[in-house]
Design a protein around this nucleic acid. Structure first.
Lengths: 320, 320
DNA sequence: AAGCGCAATGCACATATGTGCACGGCGTAG
DNA sequence: CTACGCCGTGCACATATGTGCATTGCGCTT
């Protein structure tokens, strides 16, 4: 067992998965082919699923007319993944379920030789907790915006998210050890010239997927940025003054999607929206009606190509 | 039910599938969300699977060293899909199982706006019987080679295969109503100038996927072509004389993969191997060791990009 | 060589899922 | 208006699957 430490297990799991999912054999039958017990087969299959040897996708046939996804596609030109959640569900559970779905939907998007940039926040945290393993090679996860602030280094929180993604995909994790917001924009400018930082920025520039939630001061569950001590009263005032409706990776924008001339952005560590828009796949996860204003703004800004959203909010989006 | 004749069913099935596969709810839980009984949910999920709303893939992680697939990839430069089948399995069951796997593996390959060319024969027939539904749009299936001969029109057989593919994918079916082999090559030349025929040839030329088995005179289960009255004694002699080891869609080739100067090919209705090689994805399904010589020849000819093959035969392929 | 600990295995039971059958609604033909 | 027949549904049962627990085998330590 030293030389093939589980390699046999993978082999068996793969074979079991093939027999089960591709040939419709029952576990009993597989057990006899594998000369083992049915229980072991059950466990092997479980292993195969957890481990990403089996990938299950739910595809919406493009023909279902006027489904919400299509309406969203028409109106906003993006691909929506609407997560069914009963309306009665509490806000927290709702986020949890959207996050779980997001984690599953994400799987097929990411693969070997890719780089995924991720933001941090309650939403991403939830997603990270539901990731299923999927082995990839030569892939990396890069943090989009800094996480430390005046009170904490924020490292525990953000890096936990990062490392969950890293281990789930077997990807190299590239942290971004800078504050979320600089006190002085000039510090940022200077720091941005450092080679160590430029290396990260360079990686960000070449990412294949960006994954983020939306920040919103008005959310029922106010976003992490707004309650974590990242902003002081002056900052809040400044934001209100600039008509900010939300943020993506600590970069703020207005209802019309514009993000220029918002002073806070000069101090933010996140990627500018224009930079973000160069990424070929930009996945946004949203749960809860209270994020609607932020969502509309983000749509106007065109920051996303894919939207994973709970049913009720999707509904409100196309209704209102 | 008149206006959405099953549209609701699809909707529900989709939702159920989402809840089941993406959110890990139990059928019981889904039943209550859907205000129906657990049984109905079970049925809905079954429907979702049959209907292609759910797609399940088994992926071989690229890292498993020296697996058969990798060895094949190295040696022949193609992607192999090895179907696990116990060695003790009878030849017929083996074909059946390979065919079932092939049908499942094929699903993800084919999609809307694509054209798939298919040959006919025992292998393809078996595959066609195991296809899972998958709705696509603006897609078509085109027959690669004629099927009628001196004795029968061959239409029942080939067109049954064709239509199974057509209905499974909701694709337009383009038959190719010509004999498998012409008595006189000049007839073919003349006919090939007809617009109706040229239309089909044109479609073939633009196909995105080609799917075929291998013909072999020496197979345990001799291929359909060799026993269906398509060839007479003289033909057989001619083939032997030309050192033919097998055929793809009634186009013959030698062990070294060459197919020129084989007189029969001038009379065959199938696409020349060079034409075939222009298709971006060329999937070959093989079951049974007796097809090995034909397989080696086909590999030498480079006609395939993907090979779906049973385990034992794959083994022999890399061993010998 | 005996003892220890870890991981894999199978058993037996608990759950979850699949399906034949009978019932009831609804549209249609008579 | 009634009879007929076709779904769609849920029930109850049959199967199939998941999992805690005790056992076994194996490698390593003492």
């Amino acid at each position: 067992m030293a030389e093939t430490p589980g390699g046999d297990k993978v082999r068996d799991a793969l074979r079991a998965a093939h027999l089960y999912y591709l040939q419709d054999l029952t576990m009993e039958a597989i057990a006899s082919e594998l000369h083992t017990s049915r229980s072991s087969v059950s466990r092997l299959l479980g292993f195969a699923r957890d481990t990403g040897l089996v990938e299950i996708q739910v595809k919406s046939p493009a023909d279902r007319v006027s489904s919400i996804q299509d309406r969203i596609k028409e109106r906003f030109g993006i691909t929506a993944h609407v997560v069914p959640v009963p309306d009665s569900t509490a806000e927290v559970d709702r986020l949890e379920r959207v996050a779980m779905s997001a984690a599953r939907i994400l799987g097929p998007f990411f693969d070997s030789n890719m780089t995924m940039g991720i933001a941090w926040g309650s939403t991403l945290s939830a997603v990270s907790r539901h990731l299923q393993e999927k082995v990839t090679h030569n892939s990396q996860i890069v943090q989009l915006n800094g996480a430390s602030n005046a009170r904490t280094t924020g490292i525990g929180y953000a890096s936990e998210i990062m490392s969950r993604f890293g281990t789930a995909f077997g990807a190299y994790v590239q942290q971004f050890p800078v504050p979320a917001f600089f006190d002085d924009p000039r510090t940022k400018e200077v720091l941005w010239r450092e080679r160590s930082i430029r290396r990260v920025l360079e990686i960000q520039k070449h990412m294949d997927i960006a994954l983020f939630g939306l920040g919103s001061a008005y959310a029922d569950v106010p976003s992490h940025v707004y309650v974590g001590g990242y902003l002081d009263d002056d900052d809040f005032q400044a934001l209100t003054h600039s008509d900010v409706v939300g943020d993506v990776a600590t970069v703020f924008y207005r209802a019309d999607g514009s993000s220029d001339d918002i002073p806070m952005n000069a101090r933010s560590s996140g990627p500018s929206l224009s930079l973000l828009s160069k990424v070929s796949r930009r996945v946004c996860v949203v749960s809860g009606r209270s994020k609607l204003p932020a969502l509309r703004g983000a749509l106007a800004a065109g920051v996303m190509t894919d939207l994973i959203i709970d049913e009720a909010t999707a509904h409100s989006l196309v209704e209102g």
